[in-house]
């Protein structure tokens, strides 16, 4: 019995029980950044376009694909090689899936948060994080997602997911996170 299935079932129950409330994800893909309220006015939208809203309208617990652990849209991080900003082939399907979601949901908006590991200069890392977020945006643009739906920011090395000085830890920090409006 997979843990993911169990979580998925629990999520469905939670959705049914309190569909109008934001859902606490048991395994948040963006630990620190997800608690952030985005900065730009375009993201400061009080209208709820999240999955919880869909459930309300349909009157039953239709799971938002972005919150379904079995859906590729649940995955929100694109990882990069050291000092690089190329979106690697293995992350193309993920980025393409989110681009497709944006095309199919013109009202949906997301923010791409570029991050780096914590070695070297904070300012250079801030610049590198920006490159990473824009690199992901460029792939989404090619697939038809509108600039109006995508904002890019960089946190440089300021939002570490893993704090140890090991390659596996650094690899987790070299990433762009996909955060939808309202999350």
């Amino acid at each position: 019995m997979s843990k993911q299935l169990w979580i998925s079932a629990l999520l469905a129950m939670l959705l049914a029980a309190c569909a109008s409330k934001p859902i606490e994800e048991p395994k948040a893909p963006v630990a620190e950044a997800s608690s952030s309220q985005p900065a730009e006015p375009m993201m400061d939208n009080s209208a709820d376009t999240s999955g919880a809203g869909d459930a309300d309208m349909s009157g039953k617990a239709m799971l938002d694909p972005r919150k379904d652990p079995n859906n590729i849209l649940y995955t929100r991080s694109v990882f990069f090689d050291y000092n690089k900003d190329e979106v690697k082939a293995e992350y193309r399907p993920l980025v393409e899936a989110h681009a497709k979601y944006l095309v199919e949901h013109p009202e949906a908006k997301l923010i791409l948060q570029g991050n780096t590991d914590d070695r070297g200069s904070r300012e250079f890392n801030l610049a590198l994080g920006q490159r990473r977020s824009v690199a992901v945006k460029n792939v989404m643009n090619v697939l038809g997602a509108s600039d109006r739906q995508i904002e890019t920011v960089s946190y440089g090395e300021e939002k570490q997911r893993c704090a140890e000085q090991t390659e596996s830890c650094w690899a987790q920090n070299r990433r762009a996170d996909i955060v939808y409006e309202g999350e």
Partner: peptide
């Protein structure tokens, strides 16, 4: 100061 023009600082 440093500003970003798209991808580049």
């Amino acid at each position: 100061i440093v500003l970003t023009q798209g991808a580049n600082s």
